[in-house]
Design a protein around this nucleic acid. Structure first.
Lengths: 151, 151
DNA sequence: GCTCTACATTTCGACATCGAATAATTGGAG
DNA sequence: CTCCAATTATTCGATGTCGAAATGTAGAGC
């Protein structure tokens, strides 16, 4: 979908980069998420929660929000589904009873241990379309773009 | 969220680029979509449909699927909502009555004409965190990554 | 003309996602 | 001690998103 918008040269250039950026992420997700779902029954958000609690230990839901960059109401939903499937467990914080601490269960850990290597391997294989220095450069550009506070 | 995964050097490099790529798109959407919603009541998918029918003329829903890279059932939903809001109109193809052709209404065109320049301007401003040659390089890398058929 | 297959769309059920409103709890001001 | 403001999580209603199943139509072959 090349840009058809009739704008300035500056706009055309920005839109082209923008569109390619979005498309590439689309393409990556199309390649990575269906297998994750079929083989392990996990969605992107779910594996993100499992990973976070695995690497960082039991976490208050609020922390989880910040880690996976999603809204509070969303994290409630995702944790609901994981809890229903027995992959995590909620525990009220003893000091502050407003806080729900999300623990990884043994089943959750087992599933993650099986799913993560496969997933990472697939990511690596897909990203290997770029040379190592290209990956670095892509990372640099994305980081510059994402962290810019330009309004 | 720097990678905590204990993998090979190759995996670490791929994951780092992958994460930064995803985050940058996240950040862009966080900056662009809320204003589009607040000011014009449009979602990303909705403006994509309006744009496609504006630039390409009335389109069969199947075409729309391919243009905006979404599933058929999804396009049905999005077009439902746009039709309810009077921004597009469905017409059965006279030759092949299986086909629904999506037409932009006057209201849809008016809204798009108001929303698109503002949206594009915001994209341009956000993307201007990168120099023109950086935008080109980002585009090139994303294109290479997205179109690679590497399994 | 009938039937079978292919195709376009819709429906359905599930999950993700958000923002706004609500509920529960805490901790501080008086 | 009581009340209020802030914080944490949940609920609610809307949209997007998918895949699988169902529906409706077309067109080919007989």
């Amino acid at each position: 979908m090349p840009t058809r918008y009739k704008g300035t040269t500056l706009e055309i250039a920005a839109l082209n980069a923008f569109i390619k950026l979005n498309r590439s992420v689309n393409a990556l997700q199309a390649r990575l998420l269906p297998p994750l779902q079929k083989e392990f029954g996990l969605t992107e958000s779910q594996i993100a929660v499992l990973e976070a609690t695995f690497h960082l230990g039991p976490l208050p839901q609020g922390e989880l929000c910040r880690k996976i960059l999603r809204s509070g109401s969303n994290v409630t939903t995702v944790v609901d589904n994981l809890e229903r499937d027995g992959l995590v467990r909620r525990e009220r914080d003893a000091q502050d009873r407003r806080i729900q601490i999300v623990h990884l269960t043994d089943a959750g850990r087992d599933l993650l241990m099986r799913a993560l290597p496969v997933h990472v391997e697939r990511i690596t294989r897909t990203m290997s379309a770029l040379e190592p220095d290209e990956q670095r450069e892509l990372g640099r550009l994305c980081r510059k773009l994402g962290t810019s506070t330009a309004v």
